[in-house]
Design a protein around this nucleic acid. Structure first.
Lengths: 248, 248
DNA sequence: AGGCGCTTGTGAAGGCGTGCACAAATCGCG
DNA sequence: CGCGATTTGTGCACGCCTTCACAAGCGCCT
């Protein structure tokens, strides 16, 4: 239930922001990777980059990369490649990173503590503006320059800081309640680190990251490799695909 | 591997472990989720569970779940459902979780510190047996009961503890070098938290988790929702898909 | 024993994503 | 000014995955 297909963006014509021709989810998931590669290249002094080069830096097939980029308009020059700076600008625009996004983090336990200090957020367009926890003992503690506030202040903080994205780093048992509170506070995107399924309204996006699951998937491949090497054929190596990247 | 199989391995014949008919990657990525849901149900006292119920608990379509489970043999009973305990055993066997797997963690910085103490690993079949770092200042530090050792000891530790899985939680700049060392030490599965592409031999599996990328994907959806609500139709809500779960 | 309701397992259809292969376009050079 | 080298953008085919829909199987009740 809930969950419905894109209505399709009507035939444009309205003349407004073109919004985006609905990009394939697979493409969206790769854009950040391209962006990171482009930033590296840019710092390296490159001015333009070929699809082949960028694809290598991002770890994907070059045809796939070209098709991905073609979805958001043609910003390459045949015979030359892509203008690094321009492409960065374009991708950041599409991803909505031209504005710094405020994020709140709920659950300052083991993992939450680390996330609060994770450089990668700040350096890539996000700013954690609030740390929240239900544990009174943790309230007031200053972590990486930010004081932990009580979860009850969520609604107030969310409005003050215009928070649209929330990160849940609580135990699984508390995650659904926190999610409900985030939604009530107007948050429409949630990154969930708790190992559980969240139930949210259809207009709220949830992405789940479960570290143990990643290891379990690797465990399967280990198991498979182990049984394969034990088999007659013997030829182990050359596993099927090996560089799996996360991202639905 | 593992002592008693419950009710006879279907295939039989050759007498050996049939290995697995190669499961679709998509299925493999979901098995851990099913497993988690099953454990919850088991603790809740449930003895059997229908595909509908388990699918709901795991956040997937019931037909998909049935097909996934059918790939690893038929362990359900028509008209009744699946035996929770039996299914747990089966999935754990397929994932290779019937043996506790030793993991080493390289990079005891902000994130690595948290991973070292993450309960989810221990409770789901993994044991971090070594913490490694290149920073001499960190060597010797005891984190969650385990002393940090210098990266140069990697090869030795890997052999001692039979480590097949390594976790990289270093800055991006050091990740490739660490990966090379892990591979040299015999590690064949790597979970990479550094924001960069790793180059490894074909027989080594790599899974990448980039926390900033997850946020950027959410940012895109925020951006899209924002532009949609600004459009004529006004009907905001009901975004396309909302409960995206990570996993390639 | 027989029938009825429930649930699994699966054939088939459709959609999505990937990758090849090539036409179109651009630049640089003679 | 034209030609060749290079690289983008994309039509097309293929394969994987998802989803529907239903037959087959199982237990229970009468």
């Amino acid at each position: 239930m809930s969950q419905q297909r894109h209505g399709s963006t009507p035939g444009s014509g309205s003349g407004n922001v073109p919004a985006f021709p609905d990009l394939p989810e697979a493409t969206i998931a790769r854009l950040p990777e391209y962006l990171r590669a482009l930033h590296n290249l840019g710092e390296g002094g490159s001015d333009t980059i070929s699809s082949e080069g960028l694809a290598a830096a991002a770890g994907v097939n070059s045809a796939k990369l070209r098709k991905d980029l073609s979805h958001l308009g043609s910003y390459g020059t045949r015979g030359v490649g892509y203008d690094v700076a321009l492409l960065i600008e374009q991708i950041e625009y599409v991803l909505g990173l031209d504005q710094r996004r405020a994020v709140c983090l709920v659950g300052v336990g083991n993992l939450g503590h680390a996330l609060a200090g994770y450089d990668g957020f700040a350096s890539r367009g996000f700013k954690i503006v609030a740390l929240l926890d239900a544990d009174e003992a943790k309230v007031g503690e200053v972590i990486h320059g930010l004081a932990v506030r009580h979860i009850d202040e969520l609604a107030q903080v969310a409005v003050e800081e215009s928070i649209a994205i929330g990160v849940i780093a609580t135990p699984a048992g508390a995650a659904q309640a926190v999610a409900d509170e985030l939604v009530a506070a107007g948050v429409t995107s949630i990154l969930n680190f708790a190992p559980c399924v969240l139930s949210v309204p259809a207009n709220v996006d949830v992405r789940k990251v479960d570290l143990a699951i990643e290891l379990q998937i690797l465990s399967f491949h280990e198991h498979r490799k182990a049984t394969l090497t034990a088999l007659p054929g013997g030829r182990s190596a050359t596993g099927a695909g090996n560089q799996e990247a996360v991202g639905s």
